[in-house]
Amino acid sequence: MPARFFEGHDGSVSRAVRAFPAAGVLIAAGPALVLALLLQMDADPLLPVVVALTVLTILTGALHEDGLADAADGFGGGRDREHALSIMKDSRAGSYGVIALILSLALRTAALAALAEGKAALPALGLMAAAAISRGLMVWHWAALPSARPNGVAVAAGRPAAASRTFALTSAALLALLLLLPAVSPVPVLLAGALAALAALGVTRLATRKIGGHTGDTIGATQQASEIVFLASLALIA
Rank of each mutant, 00 (worst) to 15 (best):
L35K: 01
P186M: 01
R205Y: 12
S134G: 08
R135W: 08
V25N: 00
L115V: 13
L169T: 10
F6M: 07
A129K: 00
D70I: 10
L179R: 00
A124W: 00
Y96W: 15
A221C: 12
W140E: 02
A235T: 06
V34N: 04
A154C: 08
P21S: 11
G216F: 09
M88I: 09
R205L: 15
L137P: 04
L26G: 03
A16Y: 15
V139F: 05
G61Y: 05
G76Q: 07
A238V: 11
G78W: 11
I211T: 07
E227T: 03
D44E: 13
R135S: 10
L206Y: 06
L68W: 08
L175M: 12
H214N: 13
R79P: 08
L191Y: 01
L26R: 00
A192P: 04
A197W: 12
V155W: 01
A62L: 12
L112T: 06
A71Y: 11
G220C: 10
R209V: 13
A172Q: 02
F6R: 12
L236S: 10
M128D: 02
D73R: 00
G30N: 00
G97I: 06
G78L: 09
A71Q: 09
T54W: 13
L59M: 14
L47S: 04
G8R: 14
D90K: 04
L35H: 07
A200E: 10
A207L: 09
I87N: 02
L180H: 03
T222W: 03
R92F: 11
R159P: 06
A120V: 14
L85A: 02
V49G: 01
V203G: 02
R159Q: 14
L177M: 08
E7K: 13
E117L: 13
A192I: 08
D73A: 06
D217C: 06
S233P: 05
L198S: 06
G136Y: 04
G213V: 13
A144V: 11
A173W: 01
M88P: 05
L115M: 10
V187I: 15
L63E: 10
L191H: 00
V184S: 01
Q40N: 11
T109G: 09
G67Y: 04
L180I: 05
H214L: 11
S104R: 02
A52F: 07
L180M: 07
L178V: 13
R15L: 15
I219S: 04
H64N: 10
S14V: 14
R4N: 10
G202V: 12
A116R: 01
P188R: 00
N151W: 12
T215S: 11
G94H: 08
V153P: 02
V17E: 05
L178F: 10
L191E: 06
A144W: 12
V187A: 14
W142D: 08
S226M: 08
G213S: 07
D42H: 14
V55S: 02
V184G: 00
M138V: 12
G212F: 07
G126P: 05
G67M: 10
A132Q: 04
G11W: 04
F230V: 09
V187N: 01
A22H: 04
H141T: 13
V153A: 14
I99P: 01
A238S: 15
V155T: 15
A156K: 12
A106I: 11
G152K: 04
S147I: 11
L26H: 00
V155L: 05
A110E: 10
P21K: 04
A23P: 06
P182R: 03
A194F: 15
L38C: 09
G118L: 08
R149T: 14
V98T: 15
L137Q: 12
S104M: 07
L101M: 12
G94A: 08
